[in-house]
Amino acid sequence: MKCPVCDSESYEILKTKGKNTKEVLLKCNECGNTYRETVVIPKMVECRVIISKFEESLKKTIKIYPDEVLEVGEVLVVDGEEAEITSLENVRGGRVSKSPVSELVTIWATSLSGPARVGISIDNHGWILSKKVEVDRDFQFNVGDVVKMGKAVFRIKSMKTITSKIRKGGATADQIKRIYGRPADGKDKFKYDLSSKIVEVVEEEQVP
Rank of each mutant, 00 (worst) to 15 (best):
E68Y: 13
E82I: 07
I166S: 08
G93R: 05
M44A: 13
I162A: 14
T16L: 01
K151E: 14
K22T: 12
V49L: 05
S113A: 15
K151W: 03
Y192N: 11
N20I: 09
K53Q: 13
Y11C: 10
V91C: 09
N142Y: 00
E84S: 01
V143K: 03
K168S: 15
L129D: 02
V72R: 06
V39D: 10
K187I: 08
A109R: 07
Y11M: 03
L76M: 11
G80R: 10
T38V: 14
C31K: 04
N90A: 05
K168T: 08
V105E: 13
R167N: 03
L76Y: 02
E46S: 15
K148R: 15
F190S: 02
V207N: 15
G94E: 15
E89F: 10
R155C: 00
T110S: 14
V39K: 14
I198R: 05
M159Y: 05
L14Y: 04
M44K: 15
V202H: 13
P42T: 12
L88M: 11
I122T: 00
Y180K: 09
I107F: 07
G181Q: 03
P208F: 03
D67S: 13
E23P: 04
I179K: 05
I50P: 00
S164W: 05
P208E: 12
S164P: 07
M1P: 02
V105D: 08
E23Q: 14
S102F: 12
K157I: 07
K17V: 06
D136K: 13
D79N: 14
E103D: 15
V135N: 08
V91D: 12
R155E: 13
S99D: 06
T106M: 02
D145E: 12
M149P: 05
